[in-house]
Write a protein that binds this DNA or RNA. Structure first.
Lengths: 133, 133
DNA sequence: CGGGATCCCTTACGATACTG
DNA sequence: CAGTATCGTAAGGGATCCCG
């Protein structure tokens, strides 16, 4: 048997839960940065390149709801809010490590596979359609 | 340092690649089933509950393009096509194992966190609006 | 500073019908 | 059997404005 026991249906079903949590565009990015230590909203906004303010809010709310991060509000002016990983959040990030490692290891191979596939596909298209007269 | 070395920006950037591959609704499900051995199109269709014929095709094409599965056509009538994991596909699935394990371990805690969060949120909403009558 | 509310566009996805 | 083609809907996500 493989490392994960049980029927594939079960495994995969569970997998959907994690993917629902960190499978989106930004969650893992944010978790990754929070693994470095607590961060404030604007710090994250700057650190996570390309994220919009709206998506940072949405992402953080989702992570908070799932118990991955905690949100701490210090009632001062101007507002001061810090986000940090929960212990569970820490373990979640650690659990993604093999996947990170895998990606780094296979990145070149993946790119090659894609180019090869696209080249095949493009050729078929070019060959099936007659260049107009 | 954590298990993954390098700057978070790098790690997370790589993570996006894997998530782009298996972060969608069906890919990991399909990979999971193919880990059991080669399968035919209709076998997968039946095995992966709820997947539409269209999404199975789309998913398989994507996995094929990324070098995760191979598609083998036997030219007979009726058509006979088998899909199987590539060696790289095997290792990808293995790399997801910790995440599966993590999910199984923390599922109850996640549900609890969600309910607690939702309860808090609902209370706030209920408190701000007066019950009519 | 740390958001919420709104608008709008692009994808992902599902249902259905047709085909070699 | 193993798809392709087409359509409609829902969700994801970005840009912008506003507010305590």
């Amino acid at each position: 048997m493989t490392a994960t026991s049980g029927r594939p249906q079960q495994n995969a079903g569970r997998a959907r839960v994690v993917l629902g949590m960190v499978g989106d565009k930004w969650s893992l990015l944010v978790v990754c940065h929070l693994d470095q230590g607590p961060r404030r909203f604007t710090e994250l906004k700057r650190a996570v390149e390309g994220i919009s303010q709206r998506m940072l809010t949405v992402t953080l709310r989702g992570l908070e709801r799932d118990g991955i991060v905690t949100r701490t509000v210090h009632n001062v002016m101007p507002p001061h809010v810090t986000y940090r990983l929960t212990p569970m959040g820490k373990t979640l990030y650690e659990a993604t490590t093999p996947l990170l490692q895998w990606t780094i290891k296979h990145l070149a191979h993946i790119d090659a596979a894609r180019e090869a596939y696209d080249a095949r596909t493009d050729t078929w298209l070019a060959g099936s359609v007659q260049p107009e007269h």
